[in-house]
């Protein structure tokens, strides 16, 4: 659905932020896009939504180059950036002005979410707190019913009950044939929702796997007497959490933080193990 091919980007007079990126995002999935600060996650999202143009390569939506900013394609995409400016309008006016751009917009859903987030249609957006503004934008994004939804650090600024509401809404959104891409550092807020992990490092994709494959191939946890040779990655030498090749062991829950650290330090070892599984990695 959303396809990125040989995509490269750099800001003026700086080193490349993205180098020859190849990625495929399909419907029915929630992708987690991870990377250290400044590794190009937000840049990639901006390119995928036509806000920035790649230096080379393409990002296409249903075969249509996003760079052309065709209204017919862009009406299927919504992006909630990490930083944003919203006009000083009431929530209701904002909805009236913005919703016509999205043919599948659900007014009912929007006001339902606004109410759930404890906001009122008469609230003037510019007078709200950062977290509340974020809720307005998120409620709007979720109500657009676009096929592709990109969220950059969606839980930043949300209070604890809203994080849970957010997860519920996301859980119900994905089976409607949507493709959701979430970039985040708050792994704990979202780990139960993500079913495919993409990790960027040094301007490249160093990991791109469905969690199903990860849990088939790797074992996460504390191993008391592990066999040194089977350790792929270990947080500390004594009693720390480790990643092992799973082999015949029981399936464990994927520890995303551990996976992230493991992949950053041992990308080749970990990718080599997962390469043998049938889901077909692309890295």
């Amino acid at each position: 659905m959303l396809t990125v091919r040989q995509l490269s980007f750099n800001y003026p007079n700086s080193r490349p932020v993205l180098k020859s990126i190849d990625l495929d995002f399909e419907t029915g999935n929630i992708y987690g896009l991870f990377g250290k600060n400044g590794e190009g996650k937000s840049t990639l999202m901006k390119i995928m939504t036509g806000l920035l143009f790649p230096k080379s390569g393409t990002s296409t939506l249903h075969g249509d180059n996003v760079k052309k900013r065709n209204a017919e394609s862009l009406q299927h995409v919504f992006f909630v950036p990490e930083d944003f400016e919203l006009p000083s309008l009431s929530i209701a006016t904002f909805e009236k002005v913005q919703s016509p751009f999205y043919p599948k917009f659900s007014k009912e859903k929007f006001y339902e979410l606004i109410e759930e987030f404890k906001l009122y249609p008469t609230n003037i957006i510019s007078k709200l707190s950062f977290g509340q503004k974020k809720k307005v934008l998120m409620a709007f994004g979720l109500s657009t019913n676009t096929k592709v939804l990109l969220l950059d650090e969606p839980t930043n600024g949300l209070d604890i009950p809203s994080k849970s509401q957010f997860r519920k809404v996301m859980a119900s959104a994905v089976d409607e044939g949507k493709c959701i891409v979430i970039s985040t550092h708050q792994v704990r807020d979202l780990h139960s929702l993500i079913n495919h992990v993409v990790i960027l490092d040094n301007a490249s994709v160093i990991f791109d796997q469905p969690l199903e494959t990860v849990s088939e191939g790797l074992w996460f946890g504390k191993a008391s007497n592990p066999d040194e040779s089977s350790i792929l990655y270990s947080e500390s030498s004594f009693g720390g959490k480790t990643i092992l090749a799973r082999n015949d062991m029981e399936e464990t829950e994927v520890d995303l933080e551990l996976l992230f650290n493991g992949v950053l330090s041992q990308p080749n070892k970990i990718n080599a193990i997962l390469k043998d599984f049938h889901h077909g990695p692309r890295v």
Partner: peptide
């Protein structure tokens, strides 16, 4: 080897 591990979410 002894393990203390997290149960997969689906089993929970």
């Amino acid at each position: 080897m002894d393990f203390d591990n997290g149960k997969p979410i689906y089993l929970q």
